[in-house]
Simulated scan of single mutants.
Amino acid sequence: MSTGLQAATKLEEKVVLVDINDRQIGVAEKLQAHRDGLLHRAFSVFVLNSQGQLLLQKRAQHKYHSGGLWTNTCCSHPRHEETTVLAAHRRLQEEMGFDCELREIFSFVYHAQLDNDLTEHEFDHVFVGYSDREPILNPEEAEDWKWIDLKILQADLLKNPQAYTYWLRDCCDRFITAIQ
């Protein structure tokens, strides 16, 4: 399948629409949900190594939004009738080429205007995992990766916020507090 066709197919995937309490109220095509700013279920995975460093990925430049920005280890949306934790494991394998034990540590709702006239409005479930494995990137999803010390990340988020995704900037401090 060509890259363009893969991207079009992924944008036609459905996301789970939810209310402010994360109760499902419907489904919508992913791109339409992002065009209309509809609240939908999502997840963010943060993988730490044995030195306490966070694995970041740089989103592929051709992604439909936030391309070329650094973000947490992986993030996406569960499919209709897929649990959030199973979706997190699936996407960690699909994006980064490995899996590890994950546990949910908190959730939050955010609303942000993005590039390409899109809006993120997500009920985001945040998972943490631990691994020392080096990722095997899926080039459709990510173009680079690095391990980073959490204090260095916090400082760089303040100094260079434009280099990072909105959701990472929004939840990084909460993530650090939750794991301490």
Score class of each variant (00 low, 15 high):
5 L>W: 13
6 Q>E: 09
7 A>G: 01
7 A>V: 06
7 A>W: 01
9 T>R: 14
9 T>E: 09
13 E>V: 00
17 L>C: 10
20 I>M: 09
22 D>C: 03
28 A>G: 08
28 A>H: 12
29 E>W: 00
31 L>M: 09
34 H>S: 02
36 D>N: 12
40 H>C: 11
50 S>C: 02
51 Q>R: 10
53 Q>M: 04
54 L>Q: 11
55 L>Q: 14
55 L>G: 08
57 Q>T: 09
62 H>R: 07
62 H>I: 01
68 G>S: 11
70 W>F: 05
70 W>I: 02
72 N>D: 08
73 T>A: 11
74 C>Q: 03
74 C>P: 01
79 R>K: 04
84 T>C: 15
84 T>G: 10
88 A>E: 10
88 A>T: 00
93 Q>C: 04
95 E>M: 13
96 M>D: 05
96 M>V: 03
99 D>A: 08
103 R>S: 08
105 I>Y: 07
110 Y>H: 12
110 Y>T: 14
113 Q>D: 09
114 L>I: 05
115 D>V: 00
116 N>Y: 09
116 N>K: 08
118 L>F: 02
121 H>Y: 10
131 S>Q: 03
132 D>H: 01
141 E>G: 05
141 E>S: 14
142 A>S: 15
143 E>F: 01
145 W>L: 01
145 W>V: 00
146 K>P: 02
148 I>M: 14
151 K>N: 06
151 K>H: 06
152 I>N: 04
153 L>W: 14
156 D>K: 13
162 Q>A: 15
162 Q>F: 09
163 A>H: 14
164 Y>P: 01
164 Y>G: 05
165 T>A: 04
168 L>V: 11
174 R>T: 07
180 Q>W: 03
